[in-house]
Design a protein around this nucleic acid. Structure first.
Lengths: 134, 134
DNA sequence: CTCTGTGCAAAGCGTTTGCAAACGA
DNA sequence: TCGTTTGCAAACGCTTTGCACAGAG
């Protein structure tokens, strides 16, 4: 069982019920946009404000605890920082899945074709998830 | 020499001086954000309005003549639609370059690891461009 | 001539900020 | 207790809309 409180402390973030709830939701759901998060938090804290969500998301991004994923033709989602991975995005239902891909082929090609020194990869693959492709 | 007028006609877009200028700038610069475009157009049409830029960008996206590229930690840029390619983004100066990569390795891995039916790839590699890495 | 595009100003919407009160350490 | 966070409301910035006039076909 994951201890959200200690997770926050490790990243120098004061522990508040709202923050714990944000981390818990992101941990359970993997990726969420601002509205999804707000709706989830509202059910636990009827008086939570959108400003609190924004302030916390930004604080967590600052601490490199959270990261924003910009999805083509859709809203950004947020996720807990973990080892580098790609995203699969369903163009039908919006479902997002993580996938661990070996990007070495991409990086090798890039180093032969260009003089850029690459240090981060951002790969988003779009298509239909198993449910929607039926 | 590229004929911007005919290019617009092919995509069922009425030819106006402002539209020609937008296409010309994007053709010459490859990728531009809204502000860059606005500044460039202002020098040709001192009374051009930001609303016109937005309306035209949206009309061109609708016709699948232009596409938006969402860059991590930065503003979106727009580019003329062409064959699929990846982007190299300099984290220092913001310079963006196109690169033709063979994504087959990525797609093969995805098909063995997941049941998603992928139909679009979005690859953005971050790092330092040749100038900034000196 | 008709319909679409332009420029302006206003409206809209998501995000950020300032502040007093509440809360965490 | 002291400094940080919360919730509210106002402010902000980017994008869209409505409208009258100009321009394209």
């Amino acid at each position: 069982m994951t201890n959200y409180t200690n997770l926050l402390k490790e990243y120098d973030l004061k522990v508040t019920p709202q923050r714990v709830a944000i981390v818990e939701e992101l941990y359970k759901n993997g990726h969420m946009n601002i509205d999804d998060l707000y709706k989830k938090l509202l059910s636990k804290f009827p008086s939570v404000s959108l400003a609190t969500i924004y302030k916390n998301i930004n604080a967590m991004i600052e601490k490199v605890f959270l990261s924003e994923v910009k999805i083509p033709n859709s809203k950004s989602v947020y996720e807990l920082v973990k080892t580098e991975h790609a995203h699969l995005v369903c163009s039908c239902c919006g479902h997002i899945e993580d996938i661990m891909l070996d990007a070495s082929s991409i990086l090798t090609q890039t180093s032969t074709l260009s003089s850029f020194k690459i240090d981060s990869t951002n790969i988003i693959l779009g298509g239909l998830c198993p449910k929607c492709s039926k």
